[in-house]
Computed example of a mutant assay.
Amino acid sequence: MHFRLPVLYLALSFLLAPSGQAQDMSEKVLGESIYVPAYSRIFSYPQRSDLLAATLAVHNVDPETPITLTRVDYHGEDGKVLRTLLETPLELAPFQSKTVLIPINDTSGGVGSNFLVVWSSEAPALSPIAEAIMTSGSGGPGPSFTTRGRVIERQHAE
């Protein structure tokens, strides 16, 4: 059966970090900064684009340990902070989630916008899932997709 190698490669690619080292999904840490790609529009032709709403969702997947969101920022494609989306730190209980909406009529982020999510915990905790859900919001068929965040900084427990 010659299809096993591509399937195995695909399965392993999800488990490997960009550096080629395996990610330990059960590692508990004291905090992280997570970069989450988002898109306020996508192009289907050089002069035609579809507007998108972006919803950031952060899920505390640790069944025992609360985490605290300390910063959630929305950046434009030029890298500049467009707005801070969290006024004060917000604790997420085990399995609790927080969502933030960038409406479809807000095109300030451009094609390559992103979120920066910073969290911490007093006790070592599992890394939350941070993802963006983009949708055309038109009610009819249109583009909808998700992006998963990538940890760019980590505070290990000692």
Rank of each mutant, 00 (worst) to 15 (best):
F3Q: 15
F3A: 11
L5N: 06
L8F: 15
Y9M: 15
A11Y: 14
S13R: 05
L16C: 07
A22H: 00
D24K: 00
D24A: 06
D24P: 06
M25W: 11
S26K: 07
K28F: 07
L30S: 02
G31A: 03
G31F: 05
E32I: 05
E32R: 01
S33K: 08
Y35G: 03
Y35W: 12
V36I: 11
A38W: 12
S40K: 03
S40P: 01
S40R: 13
R41K: 09
R41Q: 14
R41Y: 13
F43G: 13
P46Y: 08
R48M: 13
R48E: 14
R48A: 10
L51T: 06
L51H: 14
L51F: 12
A53W: 07
A54S: 13
T55V: 02
A57P: 01
V58P: 09
H59D: 14
H59M: 05
N60F: 03
V61G: 05
P63S: 01
T68S: 10
T68N: 04
L69C: 01
L69S: 12
T70D: 07
R71W: 05
R71Q: 03
V72K: 10
D73K: 01
D78L: 04
G79V: 04
K80N: 11
K80P: 09
V81Y: 01
L82R: 04
R83I: 02
T84Q: 05
E87A: 10
T88V: 06
L92I: 08
L92H: 09
A93E: 12
P94I: 00
P94Y: 03
P94W: 04
F95S: 03
S97G: 06
S97D: 12
K98G: 07
T107A: 10
T107R: 03
S108E: 12
S108Q: 06
V111D: 14
G112M: 12
F115T: 00
L116E: 01
V117M: 03
V117L: 03
V118S: 02
V118A: 05
S120D: 10
S120W: 08
S121D: 14
E122T: 15
A123G: 00
A123P: 00
A125K: 02
L126N: 01
S127F: 09
P128L: 00
I129W: 09
A130M: 03
A130H: 02
A132W: 02
T135G: 11
T135I: 11
G137D: 01
G137I: 02
S138A: 08
G140H: 11
S144H: 11
F145S: 05
F145K: 02
T147W: 06
T147Q: 01
R148N: 06
R148D: 13
R150G: 09
R150D: 00
I152K: 07
I152T: 14
E153W: 04
H156K: 03
A157R: 07
E158P: 15
E158R: 11
